[in-house]
């Protein structure tokens, strides 16, 4: 047979699955079938696969406007590359691995761990915990693929702890941009156990410094400064946990800003690009500070996990 052909193995979640952590099959109009993952955070799926390197496409059913979910994927016990993208009304998780991940075998066991679980009612029934909606998993052989990772346990536990003990969300972003400053109005943000229905993130400062003020309606602002040399200054008086939460939120701001730009009409492209660049620098600095804090700082998990974020008086 001629070269452009690639054999595909299709796992359709409408049918019985070899695995665990899936709710019952559902069918949308237009013959789009899927299963919600859940009720647990980890879902497994076993399927035949070529013995060498390979790739897979996990087709995800999304709501209109919903971003593809953050899902960690493991193959035969090892973390593997998984990149989300949008494809029409669907999301796709592009998964890839090298030959070592299959170890010469022909049965692939995938684990899926979404970052976020939510409570939704089953059709006409009780509430249930769900993660993401998987329609199909399609597997193909490739000549080569990225090396699979290790330390699956650390990744699984770390993601669980982040999701359960140090959750952060930016929510929906609306932007007001000018050359002198920018405001991001976040709806549905979260800092740990504290939900923030509205949070204003004001951006300002000269070229060599970025000043960020985060404030709920009528509340005092948390002020963060990024100096030209890369130094990040957080407000004083934060507990170790709250400092980690704030750093996680700062690191996520560029992605929220990008969504805000996508939704904004008439945004000045060069102004938006400049603020996005500066937020990128802030995110990178927050990422470094977060790494230092998690590695060598005080235990951010100590203390009462139900205690709200310590907003300044």
């Amino acid at each position: 047979m001629t070269a452009p052909w690639t054999r595909r193995i299709v796992v359709d979640l409408l049918h019985p699955v070899d695995g665990s952590g899936w709710h019952e099959a559902e069918l949308l109009p237009g013959t789009v079938g899927f299963r919600w993952s859940g009720p647990g955070r980890l879902s497994t799926l076993r399927a035949p696969a070529p013995p060498g390197a390979g790739r897979a496409e996990a087709l995800l059913v999304l709501q209109p406007g919903e971003a593809p979910p953050d899902i960690a994927v493991f193959l035969n016990g090892r973390p593997v590359a998984a990149a989300p993208r949008r494809l029409g009304a669907f999301g796709v998780l592009d998964i890839a691995w090298d030959a070592a991940a299959m170890a010469g075998g022909t049965l692939a066991e995938f684990w899926f761990q979404p970052a976020r679980m939510i409570q939704l009612p089953a059709p006409g029934q009780r509430m249930r915990s769900v993660g993401f909606r998987l329609s199909t998993l399609t597997i193909e052989a490739t000549e080569d693929g990225p090396e699979a990772g290790s330390e699956a346990a650390a990744l699984l536990l770390g993601r669980r702890l982040l999701a359960e003990r140090l959750p952060v969300a930016t929510g929906r972003a609306r932007l007001v941009l000018s050359r002198d400053g920018a405001e991001m109005h976040l709806e549905g943000a979260r800092l740990g156990p504290t939900a923030l229905p509205r949070l204003t993130v004001a951006l300002g400062g000269l070229d060599d410094a970025l000043e960020v003020a985060l404030a709920p309606p009528g509340g005092a602002a948390l002020r963060v400064t990024l100096r030209g040399g890369g130094g990040l200054a957080l407000p004083g008086g934060l507990s170790p946990r709250d400092a980690v939460l704030l750093l996680r939120l700062l690191a996520a701001l560029p992605e929220a800003f990008g969504r805000g730009v996508d939704a904004a009409e008439g945004a000045l492209p060069e102004v938006a690009a400049d603020w996005r660049r500066r937020l990128g620098a802030l995110s990178a600095a927050a990422g470094v500070a977060l790494a230092v804090a998690l590695s060598d700082g005080p235990d951010p998990l100590a203390g009462d996990p139900g205690l709200g974020f310590g907003w300044p008086a």
Partner: peptide, 17 residues
Amino acid sequence: FGMEVVRILERDAWRLA
């Protein structure tokens, strides 16, 4: 039944580049 027909047919599924 149609879903099952598709499942059976996809035992021999291919992608053409």
